[in-house]
Design a protein around this nucleic acid. Structure first.
Lengths: 259, 259
DNA sequence: CTTGACCTTGACGCTGCGTCAACCCCCCAT
DNA sequence: ATGGGGGGTTGACGCAGCGTCAAGGTCAAG
């Protein structure tokens, strides 16, 4: 007759595991001796080993009982099912591994390389770190909503940075946000440039992210994000509204310009 | 200002997950409105998305906080560590998958193919299912203790089955165990044959599983297993002892035979 | 008799939330 | 005014497979 620790040792498991199997009814409770100790027969060792074989093969404990009693075909079906689940799990982990490899490689922000290129171009143009950080957060939001579309959009966004007007706009915005003053004149100047660019884009039909349904509206969110980052952006939004444009991240025509 | 469900929707997670992140301090609790509702800023969406990016990459929640604050090199080290752990986990699962494939292929008992061959040979010789089952359980125990050695031993075990004496022994044992009578004469006959075989093996120096330390003693266990399967085996043990041999699974000389 | 090793039950901890429960709040239609 | 439906709130259990105390009772040996 064996004690629980002997049983456990023979089967290569811990005492706690054996007790756990008793609790869930996987291994029958043996007789107790006079002092209440569990006393096991040799057969229990075989039972326990068979349980561990299945457990080591990745079979959930809750299914092992049935499997040990099952006939060959039922057993085979169960094995196939388990194998499928293991396969799924492995696939999931490997996907995670790819993800984390990208994290290590990229800007540690999980942005597509096209986007980090764009951000680097902004820095090269002289845009302040604060504004770049704002852009970065915006693109994180965009990427979450349209993971694939974003990569398609980037080339034209990058190309647009060659436009002297746009460069000028970014620089002015950087200046404003880096200073602590509420220099309204610069804000007005920025608004004028933006309105001009918007007008230009509108005429040439460039404002057509049409497929991007508006009912999904993360653009309001982007604007809110900008305002949070610096309240002076609110003033900019107001100025744009005066000029007939709503929004910032995605400009929308309010009405034909009065002039 | 966003409600918790809006925040969750933007980040593509459940409301419960967001609350969980608050609980563990991963995402800061936002302000509450007059009625106690949580109200989120746009920045919270960005925070939440960044958390999910790391979580999806397999980073444990408990580490995400530190990683989001870490500098580039610390971050890289952490990523490497996570990647290693993911690799380990994948390796474990793949090992499980191999195991289960073997289970499906083999005798659904997790015995090496050599052993199942041996068991089949026993059946071919005319050994009863009951005795084969006993042998099987014994080999399950042996395989658990010496997973690799067992495969080495099988060829000679299989070869020994050609010995007419051994065949006869197995057949007699089968007969005895299949019958309900306590036919002592047959038991004595079996014991005589066993003793003869043991003597033979002893002289030719075959009894030398020497490397298999006896302090590991699963042989007592094997004997106990046999007795459990059929109490008449106890009588066989006694008969063997009279003939100067101890044990059954592993015969050991007690003393020189008196004649 | 003491000591140390082993046994007992009971209960919390870990991971990342899902899923009630019981109750409050807001807005809209009747 | 009232009711209903779809929000929100905290609190708590559940899952898988044990690890790890806690607080004892038991056994064999010196």
């Amino acid at each position: 007759m064996l004690t629980i620790s002997q049983l456990a040792a023979y089967a290569g498991v811990t005492v706690r595991a054996v007790r756990h199997y008793h609790q869930i009814g996987l291994l029958p409770e043996p007789e107790r001796d006079a002092s209440g100790y569990r006393r096991y027969s040799a057969g229990a060792v075989v039972s326990l080993i068979r349980i561990r074989i299945l457990a080591n093969a990745g079979v959930p404990l809750s299914q092992i009982g049935q499997m040990l009693e099952a006939d060959a075909s039922t057993f085979a079906a169960a094995v196939e099912e388990i194998d499928r689940q293991l396969g799924d799990e492995i696939a999931r982990l490997e996907a995670s591994r790819k993800q984390i490899a990208q994290l290590a490689a990229g800007d540690r922000l999980a942005l597509a390389p096209e986007v980090t290129t764009y951000l680097d171009r902004l820095r090269a143009i002289g845009v302040s770190e604060r504004v770049v950080a704002g852009e970065r957060d915006s693109w994180i939001l965009m990427s979450a909503r349209w993971p694939d579309r974003v990569r398609e959009w980037m080339p034209s966004k990058i190309a647009q940075l060659d436009d002297p007007q746009l460069k000028r706009l970014y620089r002015i915005l950087s200046e404003i946000l880096e200073s602590d003053t509420g220099d309204d004149a610069r804000l007005v100047e920025a608004a004028d440039i933006m309105a001009g660019l918007a007008e230009q884009a509108y005429r040439s039909g460039e404002i057509d992210l049409g497929e991007v349904a508006q009912d999904d509206l993360p653009f309001d969110l982007l604007d809110a994000l900008a305002v949070e980052a610096d309240p002076r952006v609110q003033r900019l939004l107001d100025l744009m509204r005066e000029r007939g444009w709503d929004g910032l991240a995605r400009l929308e025509r309010l009405a034909e310009p009065s002039t």
